[in-house]
Simulated assay, not measured.
Amino acid sequence: MRKDLYIRLERISAWCGVVLLIGFIAAFGAGGILTPMSPTKSPADIATFLQDHRTGILWCTVIMVLTVPFEYPYVVVTSLQLKRVEGGWGLLSMIQLTTGVVAPLGFFFPLAILSAAAYRPDIHSPDVLAAMSDTFWLMLVGNACIFVLQVWSIGYAAFIDRRERQVFPRWYGWLSVVLGVLLIPGAFVYLNHSGPLAWNGVLANTIPSLTYFVWKIATPYVLLKAIRSEERELAGTAESEPLTV
């Protein structure tokens, strides 16, 4: 592959992160679920919410179905940059790649359940709708800690990179480590109906969500800088030399 084409594809993949961020905000905003409902809401209140937000929830799922596939080039280009740190495919780049590949499922499956509840809310009892809503929030928030190793692998790479121009800056490494730590409390939503560890709590949801959005803004930025430095490195090699990924 020509080096200029390879770099262009990497840049497009990095910009996919911006598409994802915009898509997430638009989707969850349309569905009225940017802020989680309380786990203590009654089945009647949940049924009313689903009926009132039916169109928005269904559009949320449509937007996510169209947006989430952009996660794949975004994850791959991140692993390609980790590969530069490791000097080839290694443990960190493969951990990031494999955990990132399953990340879209953390949105698809919960949203499919919520959409099924909102699709025909008039034919289900409030108890059934409440159970489906509970499943959505428990899966969406509770399974986020699965991706702790994904962000920690990136953070660790920033700490071990000894090159003069680091692929990932040290501050981004710390941001990734902090995000990984903040995702862990999500595992405890299954045990709590209220308080900071409930699915709408400050520890399980609010702080991790805010940090996640900061991370989603920072990642395309550092990727684009890393790709620029890679372009300079490739420019120093002979034009006739084939590029091996």
Rank of each mutant, 00 (worst) to 15 (best):
L243V: 13
R54W: 14
A47W: 11
Q51G: 15
L91Q: 06
L82G: 02
R228P: 04
A131L: 09
G100P: 07
M132A: 14
F107K: 06
A130E: 02
K225L: 11
V177Y: 05
S125P: 03
N143R: 01
L224I: 12
D45N: 09
I22S: 00
G236D: 14
V18Q: 00
Y172K: 05
P73H: 01
G32M: 05
C16V: 08
F107E: 02
E241D: 15
F109C: 05
F70G: 00
V214P: 14
L105A: 02
L9V: 09
D45I: 06
N143T: 14
A116V: 07
L9P: 09
D45S: 10
I160D: 01
W15H: 13
E239M: 12
C60I: 06
P126L: 01
G88K: 08
V148N: 00
Y190F: 15
L140S: 10
F168M: 11
R8W: 13
S125Q: 06
F107L: 10
F188K: 03
A204T: 08
I227K: 02
T244Q: 09
N192W: 09
K216Y: 15
A158Y: 07
A157Y: 09
V189G: 02
S42H: 12
P39T: 05
Y221P: 01
W152S: 03
T237D: 09
